[in-house]
Structure formats: C-alpha cells, structure tokens
C-alpha cells in the first residue's frame, strides 16, 4: 500500500467510526438519554453486529464476538463465586468472613475439611505460573476421578439400565378383552426400534443377512430421530430469531406498539 492509499483508508475508517458513534448517540437521544435507553441501544447495536455476519465477517461482528467471550467468562466466574465459593468454601472454612454477604450461614461451625478443595483449587491455578504446571495435575486428577466415578453410576443407572427397563414393553396389548391395535403397533415399533438401533451400533459382527436387515431398520429409526431433532432445531432457532427481531422492532424502535 502506498502512503496515499493508507491515508485515504485511514480517513474512511475515521468517518465510519464517527458515523457509528453518531448513530449510537442518536438512538440514545430517541430514548431520552436514559440509562434504560443506553442498555436497549447497546443490546440493539450488539444484535445488529452479530447479524451483520450474514453479509460477511466484519469488524462489528468481531467486536461483538470478542465482547461475548469476555462477558461470558466474567459471568460464569461471578456466578461461581457467589453461588459456590462464598457459601461452600469461605463460609465453611471461616464462617464469620461471609457475615456481610450471607449472615444466615455466618454462625455455622467451621469445617476444615474444606481446606482440601481450597488447596486443590490453588494447585489448579498453578497452571498460570511459568514453571511447575504439573502441580495442577493433582486437582485435575480429582476432577477427572470425580467425573468418572459419578458418570459411571449415573449412566449405568439412568441411561443404561433405566432405558433398557423402559423399553421392555408388552408387545401384545389387550384392553377390555380386545386387542388394542394402536398401542400394540406402537410398542412393537418402540421395542424393535431400540433393538435394531442397537444392532446398527454393534460393529463386532458384519452387517449381513438377518443381522444386516436389523441394522438397516436401525438406520431408518435413527434417521427418524435425526429428522425430528432437525425439525426441532430449526423451530428453536427460528423462534430465537423472531425474539431478536421483536426486540429490535419493539423494544428498540417501538414499531410494534
């Protein structure tokens, strides 16, 4: 780029920047320069910035994206601090320390066992240090061990045994002395669907012959599930989009009154 081109681009950038600031101020003026007006304008600006990605990747989208990263990191930190750290850690190790924030738990007896997660937590933060990052492994090992132990039981009880148990349905349903055709068909589809779906996931035997037929039906059942999931996802996203447009046209511009 020549010096002249750089200067020309710099001027265009400055004008664009000023135009955005002016639009923001104008929008706030329409809301009467109130605090609420500022927040609504900010929300609208960020909504439009994200939607601008539909044109192409641009600086407004990048700004909104980076802001989202910072804001969401801080949001989860704050939520974790006030909902776990203060009542379950500081409040357990030294209860009087939380009196200004949570007086209800300030009088409970101290439990020094909670020094264990405090020490492990500090060890985890050691990863930020230039040396000795391996110290964080102790805390990581605790997290991984807890996750493995809890998941082993949870998945065994609810997802494996629970789902198998729920799939054991009567394949011939008699209601008031006669065959209930609809429930019988539904139960057959349910039982065979689960069975054939599992056959499809069984890779230790070649999918040929009767086994292959079961596997094929399994694929069809899985396709129905994916189709239903797809349909629901489309509806959920469209409904979110409608919500954003409602915000823009109603809360911000006030056109839907």
């Amino acid at each position: 780029m020549t010096e002249q081109t750089v200067e020309r681009r710099a001027i265009w950038y400055l004008l664009g920047f000023l135009a955005v600031v002016l639009a923001f101020v104008l929008s706030m003026a329409l809301k009467g320069f109130t605090q609420q007006g500022f927040y609504v304008t900010l929300g609208a600006f960020l909504t439009l910035s994200i939607l601008s990605f539909l044109y192409k990747d641009n600086i407004f989208y990048k700004m909104a994206e980076h802001l989202f990263v910072g804001v969401s990191a801080a949001y989860w930190m704050v939520m974790g601090f006030w909902s776990v750290m203060v009542p379950n850690l500081i409040g357990k190790i030294h209860p009087p320390a939380v009196k200004p924030f949570m007086p209800a738990i300030a009088s409970q007896p101290a439990s020094y066992w909670y020094l264990i997660p405090a020490v492990l937590g500090i060890m985890l933060l050691w990863r930020l240090m230039p040396k000795g990052a391996w110290i964080a492994r102790w805390a990581l090992a605790f997290i991984v061990g807890t996750t493995a132990g809890l998941n082993f039981i949870r998945y065994m009880a609810s997802d494996l045994l629970g789902q198998i148990n729920s799939s054991m349905v009567p394949l011939v349903v008699i209601q008031n002395g006669s065959l209930d055709i609809m429930t019988t068909i539904s139960n057959l589809v349910l039982f065979l669907g689960v069975f054939c779906g599992l056959i499809y996931f069984f890779f230790s035997k070649e999918h040929k012959g009767v086994f292959g037929v079961g596997s094929k039906i399994g694929i069809w059942i899985l396709m129905v599930t994916f189709g239903a999931g797809f349909g629901y996802t489309v509806m959920a996203r469209i409904s979110l989009l409608v919500g954003r447009f409602r915000f823009l046209f109603d809360d911000w511009l006030g056109l839907l009154k």
């Binding site: 349910l190 669907g193 054939c196 599992l198 599930t225």
Partner: peptide, 27 residues
C-alpha cells in the same frame, strides 16, 4: 413419542456403554 424415542434410546444406551467403559479406563 414412538420411533423418535426408540432411536433416542438406542443412542442413549450406546453413549452410556461408552461412558461406562471410559470411566472404568480412567479410574
């Protein structure tokens, strides 16, 4: 309620078997 649930159950059971095996390997 029926075919979608059947497919979901097959997936859930498959995932559960994977998670249980992985948890044991980790422990």
């Amino acid at each position: 309620a029926i075919p979608n649930l059947a497919g979901q159950r097959a997936i859930i059971i498959g995932i559960a078997l994977g998670v249980i095996a992985m948890s044991l390997r980790v422990i």
